[in-house]
Design a protein around this nucleic acid. Structure first.
Lengths: 330, 330
DNA sequence: CTGTTAGCGCATTCAT
DNA sequence: ATGAATGCGCTAACAG
């Protein structure tokens, strides 16, 4: 039965017949020691099962090798692949990552940042619901990298869904649609603003009529609830803030006997469902994995080089045509 | 522009005209101080924006208020809801949670545990791929709670998919199926063993013939790849380790022109896809949210009370009949 | 190359 | 009720 308290640097030192300085060096800057000594120490450490105490190390160096990743909703399928990508990138650089879930609430997000504050070197804020001012303030304290949030002066990775949304509108126009609606997402969402603007802009350019329907929480059930409004709008095509919302709409439309795409064309956004809906959903591609990986690399860079470059990394998207879009009903 | 280094206990002490001992007490055991002093200190702390340094506190007390949550694959839809539930439960008790992704690899899982080791008070291991011995060893060092892993002596929450799987087999039998196959999951997975055993046991009890097809990584593509073997087996129904695998099979079957459920009945497991596949998938319910919440409560209990009760918390499941199961072809 | 010394920021005896 | 002193485990000058 192993003891509950882990061996310390001192025990290793004693076991190896050196002082703790040497043990410390063996783990941080082995090139300063003779190979012989390093070997001795490694052997002793191995034998005792010694692992450096990160907390103690952090107190001494001010660096704990931790970063915090905060997302609005872990369970929203848009985020897990991004989280996973960020994780494995962090792993490569030996960082541990705290995960925070803001539940789409600015207050909760702020609270989490405070709680993590003391023990992380930097933050990766995904689709942050904070205000620009709050973000700037936090960024003044320690490095922050943003995903899908465009704040001047703060390194950010933006998935430009506008490009894909524009393609979607063009696609619908080419199918003969004259009137469409956009079903929105969270108020504080940068992606939502961007998508809504892209729909409006491209629709106007093509001479289409466009309405907007508000919808705060992006989820299956919310998609169902919004259907009556969509139907009442008289539009022949709808673009939803995300796939989840679109999926909910699809289910509700099926229940109401409204056939897709014959009576109504539906376009999602983020391509998180793949071809798994029925009919398979026409949507806008997402590049969340690249975004997660890139953002984390940016953050690590900022941490290692002390400098946070003012990068604005944009990832374009495309429309993915599947089977929920078709010719406009006449 | 706020300074980048946070104020320390000493600065607060000086500002308040007391020693750091008093400041420390003001934050941990204010009842030991006069109200007057506490007020003075609080005011000074407030003014300076002082927040206790968790790292320093941890080094001194051995308690950092962090826990680690390790899952095989964040991007597997089974886990996010569980993670979310565990998160919010941790939040209620003011714990920060590290998230680790083992990529289904025991070695990676072990590495993560080591890396977190120094800075967490306990672990929540979900669907751990480690050996019993490894788990016991880690549990000897600090509190561990398991989800979907049944190791004697270690607090664990088990989602009993056997009950649901058994119902599934009975369901298939009642539809006239005589021969079925089980498409497996990860080798180290407790759930996989449990499901496979349940299929065999109940099939035998009902006089059905049953084959097993191995399949290491539970994912959409793996589901597609396994289809030829399933078809070759001559079975009229298949039960898959999880919904993802089943979904991949559905896609491949569609591509091959094999109609479901007319020619082949398909049952998934975990109900992570809801009714979103086509045809909508018959599956076994999951209770991952309750599992996450319960496990985290158990862990916090173990941390606060020093004692890890040997609980074995079992959550039963049921079959959810949708549209991928039908009468056996004749 | 390696040992000695002094903290990092805080909690916690032990005094007073 | 409060102050002084010690140590948590480790890194980082500073010597030699």
């Amino acid at each position: 039965m192993p003891r509950r308290t882990r061996p310390t640097i001192n025990q290793v030192a004693e076991a190896a017949g050196v002082t703790k300085s040497s043990v410390s060096r063996a783990f941080t800057r082995p090139e300063m020691l003779s190979e012989e000594t390093v070997r001795k120490i490694s052997a002793a450490a191995e034998r005792l099962g010694y692992v450096p105490n990160r907390t103690a190390r952090a107190l001494s160096t001010g660096r704990h090798g931790n970063i915090a990743l905060i997302v609005p909703d872990v369970a929203n399928p848009f985020f897990p692949p991004l989280i996973r990508a960020a994780q494995s990138e962090a792993d490569r650089s030996d960082y541990c990552v705290f995960l925070g879930n803001s539940d789409e609430m600015p207050k909760q997000e702020d609270k989490l940042i405070g709680r993590f504050g003391g023990q992380v070197e930097g933050f990766l804020l995904v689709s942050s619901r904070l205000t620009d001012e709050q973000i700037v303030e936090h960024a003044a304290r320690r490095p922050v990298v943003l995903i899908n949030r465009d704040v001047e002066g703060i390194p950010r990775v933006l998935i430009d869904s506008a490009s894909g949304v524009t393609e979607a509108v063009e696609h619908l126009a080419s199918l003969g649609h004259k009137k469409l609606v956009y079903v929105g997402g969270p108020r504080g969402s940068w992606s939502n603003k961007q998508r809504r603007a892209a729909v409006r802009r491209s629709a106007r350019a093509l001479g289409l009529e466009v309405g907007v329907i508000a919808n705060e929480y992006p989820a299956f059930e919310a998609g169902r609830r919004v259907v009556p409004n969509v139907l009442a709008s008289g539009a022949t095509a709808v673009i939803a803030f995300d796939d989840l919302t679109a999926q909910g709409m699809l289910a509700e439309l099926l229940d109401r006997g409204v056939s897709v795409p014959e009576e109504l064309s539906v376009v999602g956004c983020d391509d998180v469902l793949g071809a798994t809906t029925y009919p398979s959903l026409t949507t806008v591609s997402n590049r969340s994995i690249e975004a997660g990986k890139t953002a984390l690399t940016l953050l690590v860079d900022a941490l290692e080089n002390q400098a946070a470059p003012d990068v604005r990394y944009v990832l374009n998207t495309n429309i993915v045509v599947r089977n929920t879009t078709g010719k406009a009903r006449t």
